[in-house]
Simulated scan of single mutants.
Amino acid sequence: MKKLTVLKSLMITMVAFLGFSLTSCNDDRYEPVPVKLSDMNGNYKARLVTSQGGKYNEKIIEFAAKDSIITFKEFPVKEIVKSVVKDPVKADTAIAHLGKIEYKLDYTSKLNADQNVVELTFEPETLTLQIPVDGTIKNTVVKLVTKQKGFFVGYDWSMRFGLEAEKITVDGTDLTPYETIKYEIPISIKN
């Protein structure tokens, strides 16, 4: 009988302890870490959504942000080349010959402490490519623009922005007909 009383007492104590341990604290409020302009510097892995007309393409890319410059070591040029070179086999050959294309995107940043974000205003430069086709070089100039601001979000340390290839000029002549190529980075995580 003594063993049963001790066992019941032990069980009641364990249930009471478990009940108290599962109650939440009243101080469970999220306090965001205030973002600083220097927090943006670093390497990122991003989901890139490229669209032209009704065609969409997604891939994972990497870029670096430092001192008001975003550097793409491998800027995606597939859609640009395929807009210039209509033959798919020749376009794939040209893409292979181009290799990795580096592109630097300048920006200015402004801290928005109320929303805990850094707002980015971009100043895109033109992208110049020399696309080899049938033994000749097509000198291609791509006018890149940004239609809206980008953001570095302090909540999850991610960067979000977009670019558009608004116009392509080949050997001094505007490419027509041409559909705008959109490069959107809905989320990128700092490594």
Rank of each mutant, 00 (worst) to 15 (best):
K78Q: 13
I80M: 14
S83M: 09
S83Y: 06
V84T: 08
V84F: 01
V85K: 04
D87C: 04
V89T: 13
K90V: 11
K90Y: 08
K90E: 14
A91V: 07
D92W: 01
A94I: 14
A94E: 10
I95H: 00
A96L: 03
H97W: 04
H97R: 12
L98V: 14
K100P: 05
K100V: 04
K100M: 10
I101F: 11
I101Q: 09
Y103T: 01
Y103Q: 05
Y103H: 06
Y103M: 06
K104L: 04
K104H: 09
L105C: 09
L105K: 08
D106I: 03
T108C: 00
T108I: 02
K110I: 00
K110A: 11
L111V: 00
L111H: 02
A113R: 03
Q115G: 09
Q115H: 07
N116A: 07
N116I: 14
N116L: 10
V117H: 02
V117D: 04
V118W: 00
V118G: 00
E119R: 00
E119N: 09
L120E: 03
T121I: 10
E125Y: 05
E125V: 12
T126W: 01
L129D: 04
P132C: 08
V133Q: 07
V133E: 14
D134Q: 06
G135C: 13
T140V: 15
T140M: 08
V141I: 14
V141R: 03
V142W: 03
V142P: 01
V142R: 07
L144P: 01
K147Y: 07
Q148D: 10
G150H: 13
G150K: 01
F152E: 12
F152N: 03
G154K: 09
Y155W: 14
D156L: 08
W157G: 01
W157Y: 07
M159A: 09
F161A: 03
F161C: 03
F161G: 08
L163C: 05
E164H: 14
E164A: 15
A165S: 11
I168P: 02
T169S: 13
G172I: 02
T173M: 02
T173L: 01
T176K: 15
Y178G: 06
K182I: 11
K182M: 07
K182F: 13
Y183N: 05
E184I: 01
